[in-house]
């Protein structure tokens, strides 16, 4: 037996769901199956994408981060205020915003891992703190930035997709690589599987868990920057309920809520599924009530589908 080749069969179920959705919406609407629609669609997802990447890591170590939406809003608010009110260069403002996200992640991770407080509780607290912070720095007003930040969210000439999307996809690829090819990735899976065993193997799980939350915080900050580029304004109310969308995307991607199993790439597919749903239903002009019901059903259906994915993947691997 030689090295095992990892075929992407375990993404197959998700790709199947995506294709079904795209086919369905293409049949239902004249305008859905078009470059413009897809370009619009993918330019909307960078923030959710990077936040879902962070959430994947957190769920992998059997934690949860409810604060990502608020931290995103706060980071964006800090960037916005620094540009508008303090006239700082955009790059410096962005670095400051990312630093804010990182700090909140480190704080959540440290408090929950070091003092062994469930991350649910800690990040619930941070959710409120960061939201309050966002109101504080913006004086509860939307900060309009305009052109200085627009380059992040605007389509790159000749490609049609935004710089934010390109960066988000790069983050997905890098994060997947980190997960499957490095010691850090292996430790995350091990900690999510059996933290006590990891500790007794002479590895300090606290350190690694803090790192995971730090990454989630940093990516929430990056999501804030992407959001800024997209909206060209810092909205203190941005990202309310975003943590649930991120968790939904990650869970659709087959990451286990109890830790130890997950894939960044599949979380990205989860994000795409959610985005296709939203775009398709909006283009059809489906009523708000039906939208909610359908979205809920698709989340459950995709997760059910995931239950059958593993046996299917095995079967296909045998054939291959």
């Amino acid at each position: 037996m030689s090295k095992k080749i990892n075929l992407p069969w375990n993404s197959l179920g998700l790709i199947g769901v995506l294709i079904v959705l795209v086919l369905f919406f293409s049949l239902m609407s004249d305008y859905f199956f078009s470059t413009v629609t897809f370009r619009t669609l993918v330019n909307q997802i960078p923030a959710l994408t990077v936040i879902a990447v962070g959430m994947t890591y957190v769920l992998l170590v059997a934690g949860i981060d409810l604060s990502v939406g608020s931290v995103m809003a706060l980071s964006a608010a800090v960037v916005g205020v620094l540009i508008v009110d303090f006239n700082l260069p955009v790059v410096i403002a962005i670095v400051a915003g990312l630093f804010v996200g990182l700090s909140f992640g480190v704080a959540s991770g440290f408090v929950s891992a070091h003092w062994k407080i469930p991350s649910f509780v800690v990040t619930l607290g941070v959710l409120e703190i960061a939201r309050g912070g966002a109101y504080l720095v913006t004086s509860s007003e939307t900060k309009y930035i305009g052109d200085p930040i627009a380059f992040i969210g605007s389509p790159v000439p000749g490609i049609g997709v935004s710089a934010a999307l390109i960066m988000a996809v790069a983050v997905v690829i890098f994060a997947q690589w980190l997960l499957s090819k490095t010691v850090f990735g292996r430790y995350m899976i091990a900690i999510g599987t059996n933290e006590e065993a990891v500790r007794l193997a002479g590895i300090n799980p606290v350190k690694w868990k803090v790192a995971v939350f730090a990454i989630a915080g940093l990516l929430a900050g990056l999501g804030g920057v992407f959001q800024l580029g997209y909206l060209q304004s810092a909205d203190p109310n941005a990202g309310i309920g975003l943590e649930l969308s991120a968790i939904a995307a990650v869970v659709i991607g087959g990451t286990s809520l109890s830790g130890g199993r997950g894939s960044v790439v599949n979380s990205f597919f989860g994000v795409l599924i959610i985005a296709v749903m939203q775009t398709g239903l909006a283009q059809l002009g489906v009523s708000e009530s039906s939208k909610r019901i359908i979205t809920g059903l698709v989340i459950i259906a995709a997760v059910l589908f995931d239950q059958y994915r593993e046996p299917l993947a095995k079967k296909l691997n045998r054939i291959a």
Binding site: V183, R186, Y187, I189, A190, N194, A197, I203
Partner: peptide, 23 residues
Amino acid sequence: SQGLLLQGSLLSNISLSILPKLT
């Protein structure tokens, strides 16, 4: 409950404590 990563592979269970050396 304290030693193994039960869902983990045999490989990852064996190599867990020496991973930093295998880089």
